[in-house]
Amino acid sequence: MTSSATLHRRRSASRRWRRALPFVAPFLVLFVVVYLIPTVYAIAQSLFATKRSGLGLGAADVQFVGIGNYLRAFQDPGFLASLWRVLFIGVIQVPVMLALALLFALLLDAAVSTGKRFFRLAYFVPYGLPGVIAALVWSFLYAPTLSPVVQAFHAIGIDISFVTDAALPFSIANILTWAWTGYNMILLYAALQAIPPEVMEAAALDGCSGWRAALRIKVPLIRPAMLLSLVFSIIGTSQLYNEPVTMKTIAPNLPSDYTPIMAAMKWLSSNDFNYAATLSVIVGAIVCVLSVFVFRASAKRVDA
């Protein structure tokens, strides 16, 4: 009897898989072609290096170097500096952006809010602009000779610059916050809309309303959406490229390897494909580790 029941369950599971396969197959194909194969190829390329005989004028010879490129990367001051810059920008920008997104989402979800459609669109419009366009707009506002903000400060005797080495991380963080707050706000607002009305009605009957209800009831209930926004923000910050590249036109002091992706592109343009692949693999590994850490930390907090 037990064997028959087990066989029946296996057949049922097999039928479910066959029915689901046509729906899952397009995603699996795209995942393998767009993500898995390039990742495996990059890892394979990172284990090789192109050597040239003589003074570098001889024929190219691709040699297996194992972890040699990885050792080189962690001894590369330019790449290490780019990692620290992105980490610094992320530590500044991500908490501020998520806090603003949560605040706007709570304001839109409040029962007494008016003009919800207008403000929802107004908050989301910056995300609708391509990243390069947003960077160009802010570059105009940052440019020392063109910025009306800089000229206004000069008019009252204050010398200010948004493109010094010390100011660049904050200037870039401001662009990211302006561009991505609306996107994260929509995610959190959608999660707030999914909260059953009965929950908030019961809270109101118990005397919990307003900001007290928002912080003690709504925020805990949308923690999964907040976690998803946090992971997306970590991934997005690690891929920082458009904003600093665009700002090079107004900030000549911005190095070509300002971020890890820019460093990889620099070596790619120098035809050192293997080292560029190595830097890409390292960035991907760091993002995976941070994402797993965030999920594990959140799971432990829930269990506690």
Rank of each mutant, 00 (worst) to 15 (best):
A277H: 06
S270C: 02
L129P: 02
Q193M: 14
T237N: 05
G157K: 12
L254Y: 01
G236V: 03
A81P: 12
I175S: 12
I217M: 00
P126Q: 03
S269V: 06
V137T: 03
K300N: 09
F170T: 10
A5I: 00
R15T: 15
T50H: 02
L221F: 03
L47F: 02
N69W: 05
M1A: 11
K51I: 13
T278Y: 07
I186G: 03
L100N: 10
N274E: 14
G284K: 10
F27K: 09
A134G: 10
P26Y: 05
R223W: 12
P220H: 10
E198M: 14
L129A: 02
S256M: 10
S4G: 00
R19V: 10
R296K: 10
A60F: 06
G157R: 10
A225D: 09
V289M: 12
T259M: 06
Q239T: 04
P95E: 11
A304W: 15
S233N: 04
W211C: 05
A135F: 05
I217D: 02
V199L: 15
T246V: 08
D159E: 14
E243R: 01
Q63H: 04
K218D: 06
I92C: 11
S171V: 15
H8T: 11
T278C: 10
S139T: 01
V281Q: 03
S280T: 15
S14F: 15
